[in-house]
Design a protein around this nucleic acid. Sequence first.
DNA 1: CATGGGATTGACT
DNA 2: GTCAATCCCATGC
Length: 201
Amino acid sequence: MSLDFYARDVVQVARELIGATLRHGECSGIVVETEAYHFSEAACHAYVGRTPRTRVLFGAPGRAYVYRSYGIHALFNAVAEPEGVGAAVLIRALEPREGIELMRARRGLEALEGLCAGPGRMTQALGIGLELNESPLEGGAIELELPPADRPQPALVAGPRVGITKAVELSWRFCARSSRFVSRPWPKNLEAPRRASAIGA
DNA sequence: CATGGGATTGACT
DNA sequence: GTCAATCCCATGC
């Protein structure tokens, strides 16, 4: 997947990453849930500008942004937008594909549906830690591969992002519509995903 | 240098 | 439904 893919509108990248394959070591899965974050809105870490923490968000697209959440969990993002624009796509859930027994061992859980259903659970299942911050998403320890061009893109639903208190009005969370591997049940009133860029919407 | 707040999860009432 | 765990880092004094 070329850098050009990531150097675009982060909301569009978040949509198109649904269906991609995320791989680390022997474990892999299909991305079924993403969220977009852009420096122009307050829920994004890059909202505060360039700091030691957010430097990677403003850096080259197509790299990993991995940070510690609540002192406990590692959350994995793909840096998007051209260099100089702070933005990233949070990968929140996978449909497990390879290395499932290793994922089960790491998670202490048998059920497929629970292995990668949530951003902290997913990184635990795949063994992604903070040391992978800034690593490239192609040719490095972590690989993010777009689905083959002949596979139709799955139907998406969009809704508000999970676990934030600012910029809650943005529908920048995307899920594969019928997937049972998403991090939480979808709200009752489904919202059709927006076609155009939602930056500033 | 002290403080406060999380892009969460799992255990518990 | 509620709540604690746990630590990095941005902020303010």
